[in-house]
Design a protein around this nucleic acid. Structure first.
Lengths: 107, 107
DNA sequence: CCTGTATTTCGCGCTTTGGCGAAATGGCAA
DNA sequence: TTGCCATTTCGCCAAAGCGCGAAATACAGG
């Protein structure tokens, strides 16, 4: 018996996917995979303006994908949803070899 | 040694996430999880117009998330990226209980 | 309190997305 | 061919998302 997800639930899932649907935000996630980073580091890595990067971070945070931690003058961000990276691996694997091992990479 | 993903690669990943970033498209994926469905079934399930649902399907197909199969007059869609559903489970689990079992749900 | 540094919020144009009805396509069937 | 039927594409408009610089906020140090 499968239950049909409510619209609310679908919207909540979609919010996460939307947050992840931007290359610069995926770059940020990739940077954060190695450990927490301050905004200054991420601005350098992404190459956009502070305001733009800050907005990306607030989108990710609102979706629950990252968390932040203010220490001194700086704000440090960290990954809050570890399964994103394994899903990304699955995506890359599916893109590379079109079939077989796709089924193995998650679960 | 981690390699820094190219912009191309990040864009290709982001395209998948963008395709998944809409509640009606997640509804479609949920329907397809039980097996292939014709467009007519999906229109009934989603509740939007044919043109709208058809566009959602073309977005999902362009991202490689679903595949299609014309048989007779109808077109049947099916899931092409099975790891999406386990990732969604991970999302739901993370939303429910904020921490522990998140790490276990993928890989 | 005042200054400087780190970051976020605001306001603006600009592009993209989403949804609809109408028109177009592709095939089966008579 | 003619006519349906299932589906897709087109043209329009409203809404959301993006990027930037300027202004606002937060806070440590003097």
């Amino acid at each position: 018996m499968k239950i049909r997800p409510s619209l609310r639930q679908l919207e909540s899932r979609a919010a996460v996917f939307k947050a992840l649907g931007h290359p610069d935000r995926l770059r940020i996630l990739d940077d954060l995979a190695d450990g927490e980073r301050c905004v200054c580091d991420l601005v350098a890595s992404v190459g956009s303006s502070w305001s733009t990067v800050s907005r990306h971070l607030s989108v990710l945070k609102a979706a629950g994908v990252v968390g932040d931690d203010k220490r001194g003058l700086q704000v440090f961000y960290r990954v809050a949803l570890p399964c994103v990276s394994s899903f990304v691996e699955c995506l890359d694997a599916a893109k590379a070899g079109q079939a077989v091992e796709v089924r193995r990479c998650c679960r």
